[in-house]
């Protein structure tokens, strides 16, 4: 059994990676000696076109080379449309963090209120139900029109997509605080504010953290699309720009970087969630 050995899963992962890279490599091999046009024309159109290769799809070695060059020099600036991938990622992470923090500032107190008061819950529920399923990108034109700043609009889009999971989870966490804990607070005549911070907040914290984790995941998904629309800076813009440059190697490097950053953000919040989780 593989699971009996600690290195089993890692070995299997490496195997899958190797098969994938191998297949990729084989699929993108240039067909040698199959020159279909004359030498003059081959010189004119370039080697890959002349050998009848179907597309400019790079092989794994090309992409690895590209990634290596990005890792070696991630923060260069050579003009507005030529910035290092590290700088672009930093822009995106910055926007996500600002939008996410603003959303947390609004969603957690409001979710608390909704969870504590059935009246507020019933009053706000229709709005939440209608606004929650709206794609965050649908807000983009409205944001551009009202805010009149593409960078701030992107942050607003992040805000609007992060707010719902946090709001709903906070309200749910607060609503489902065990009755017996609330009864303890009641019999001890604990004042409302102290009850909110010492009983309800710690009890709901794991659920709130789950909401935050979902939010940051969605925010990271949305930022790429948002930056493709607003342009200028950010990893989303980088991807779009490299599409216009037809540099598939760069796009693949960016995809890998986006995945890694998303994983790191999730791991960070998972760690925070563990810190507030209590065993029962």
């Amino acid at each position: 059994m593989l699971s009996a050995k600690p290195w089993g899963p890692a070995l299997l992962s490496l195997l899958i990676l190797a098969v994938f890279l191998g297949a990729w490599h084989a699929a993108t091999l240039p067909e040698k000696g199959a020159q279909v046009v004359d030498d003059e024309y081959a010189k004119l159109v370039g080697k890959s076109a002349a050998t009848g290769q179907k597309s400019a799809m790079p092989g794994p070695a090309d992409v690895a080379k590209k990634i290596w060059s990005h890792v070696n020099d991630p923060f260069y600036v050579r003009g507005t449309n030529d910035k290092g991938i590290g700088i672009q990622l930093a822009y995106s992470i910055g926007r996500v963090l600002v939008g996410f923090a603003l959303a947390a500032l609004v969603a957690i107190p409001l979710g608390f209120l909704i969870g504590m008061s059935p009246t507020v819950y019933r009053a706000l529920d229709p709005f939440i139900q209608v606004l929650k399923p709206v794609s965050p990108l649908a807000w983009m034109p409205l944001a551009l029109f009202t805010i009149k700043d593409s960078g701030l609009s992107a942050i607003f889009v992040i805000f609007i997509c992060s707010v719902w999971p946090m709001l709903v989870n906070t309200a749910f966490g607060v609503m489902s605080v065990r009755k017996e804990w609330l009864n303890v607070a009641r019999t001890l005549e604990v004042r409302p504010l102290r009850k909110a911070f010492r009983v309800v907040l710690p009890a709901a914290a794991p659920t709130i953290m789950t909401g935050m984790r979902i939010s940051v995941g969605i925010a990271w998904l949305v930022i790429v699309a948002a930056e493709m629309l607003v342009g200028g800076t950010g990893i989303g813009y980088f991807v779009w720009n490299e599409w216009n440059n037809l540099s598939i190697s760069n796009i693949l490097s960016a995809i890998l970087a986006i995945g890694l950053v998303g994983m790191l953000l999730d791991a960070l919040l998972a760690r925070l969630a563990r810190a507030v989780t209590f065993p029962e």
């Binding site: 017996e180 804990w181 009864n183 303890v184 009641r186 019999t187 001890l188 005549e189 009983v199 710690p202 009890a203 507030v276 209590f278 065993p279 029962e280």
Partner: peptide
Amino acid sequence: AGPSLDRAVIFQSHALLPW
């Protein structure tokens, strides 16, 4: 009129705050 610190309750489920 309501709960009071003069009357302490020992709950069946102990109701300790787990955190």
